[in-house]
Write a protein that binds this DNA or RNA. Structure first.
Lengths: 125, 125
DNA sequence: GGAACCTTGACACGTCTCTGGTAAGGTTGG
DNA sequence: CCAACCTTACCAGAGACGTGTCAAGGTTCC
């Protein structure tokens, strides 16, 4: 039945994660494999790739699974994203070269940031 | 600006945080107050407001300081943001062809639908 | 039918987050 | 000068995160 779908142990070997962690990652909502009729996890090529890149991502930036999970939540929950964005935009006294308003512009669409160009950050204190 | 700047204890009282937490929040990079010549923390009106809204933000969405800190990091580190964004954009469990081995266990993903209908129509491949 | 898988659930341990303390020492202002 | 602030630094404890392991029970397949 399963064409190229791997079981959890096979997936573990090819991705570098442990079976335990694959279940944990699934629980955290980051990589959710399909299931066979009897409930076995089936990891397809997409999931496997995702698991490998996830590994790289975490190591490269020293992130935790919870960080990526939160980022995902940000991408899914517009209300949350808006609230966080709003809070962060009220940058108090941290003058970096940060473009306020643009940053969380993921979920691609276009690059029409009307407000970014208009409002100029205040003369910092 | 020495006029309306509060000390850490005063700020604690007006924001609801404890002095201890104000230092912790500063350490996490979320609200960094100015310092007096001798090193005393000086919270201005902007910081105080930020602290209050931070409180609301955390409670309203059940976030942790680390979550907001990570969001801030996302906003500042373009490379990180790009990497995370890229990872998230890769289709996670969007089964078009996965529907072959259909299983009944596909349950949650509830608010995904709700929010999809609410505000973020795009987000496709 | 039995070996070799898979599933969920639970115990466990180290580390981190979030808070609160306490201690040792500098600042401030009456 | 001294009380009342402030500072940093460390101990502590509940809870979450990241893993491993083990148990009891279904599936698969030869």
């Amino acid at each position: 039945m399963a064409t190229d779908a791997l079981t959890i142990h096979e997936s573990a070997e090819t991705t570098g994660w442990s079976p335990r962690m694959l279940r944990y990652i699934e629980r955290s909502g980051l990589v959710v494999p399909a299931r066979s009729a009897s409930g076995y996890r089936l990891y397809g090529a997409a999931e496997l790739q995702r698991l490998r890149t996830l590994r790289e991502l975490l190591e490269r930036f020293e992130l935790g699974l919870s960080d990526v999970a939160f980022a995902q939540r940000l991408g899914e929950d517009a209300e949350l994203r808006g609230a966080v964005e709003e809070w962060l935009e009220a940058e108090p006294a941290r003058p970096e070269h940060v473009a306020a308003g643009d940053w969380l512009g993921w979920e691609q669409d276009k690059h029409q940031k009307l407000l970014a160009a208009a409002a100029t950050p205040p003369a910092n204190v």
